[in-house]
């Protein structure tokens, strides 16, 4: 009683050698919005310049990948992938991994710094209290 599966419609652009203008516009608009948001956050000092670099680079790369689609296809070939989506996903995941490592590095550094600060604060406090009580 299984109804016959509908023939999978061949997606027009997955394996094709070009992006439609529609697709390009969507990608470029989203990336530009991301870039504008990052710039806005840096301007408001909500993101430090040093940590905005990876994000800005990613946004610009996505725009380039959509505009110069041949580069994306070349990368797909380089990775040995069949569909450009695979290459794009692979690169996206790679970007997220790098970003996470950066965050972990910063987090570790800050944990150490916060501990050093809290130790110094505690020690200074004790010394201050002793000084105020005129103890040695």
């Amino acid at each position: 009683m299984n109804p016959p599966l509908p023939e999978a419609a061949n997606p027009p652009s997955v394996a094709a050698g070009h992006l439609t203008t529609h697709q390009q516009v969507v990608v470029v608009v989203l990336s530009v919005l991301l870039l504008l948001f990052i710039v806005h956050m840096v301007r408001r000092r909500a993101i430090r310049e040093e940590y905005s670099v990876l994000w800005l680079a990613a946004g610009i790369l996505v725009v380039l990948a959509a505009v110069f689609y041949s580069v994306t296809l070349a990368l797909t070939h380089l990775f040995g992938a069949v569909a450009p989506t695979t290459a794009v996903f692979l690169l996206s995941i790679l970007f997220l991994v790098v970003l996470n490592i950066q965050i972990t590095v910063v987090l570790s550094r800050q944990t150490t710094q916060i501990h050093r600060l809290s130790q110094e604060l505690a020690l200074l406090n004790e010394r201050l209290e002793r000084t105020e009580r005129k103890e040695p």
Binding site: S118, A122, N125
Partner: peptide, 20 residues
């Protein structure tokens, strides 16, 4: 004597504070 860390920082941090 009391040296008081401003927040919970873990056993190792407390030990180090005492040794400093």
């Amino acid at each position: 004597r009391v040296v008081s860390l401003p927040f919970n920082s873990g056993y190792g941090c407390a030990v180090k504070t005492g040794l400093i």
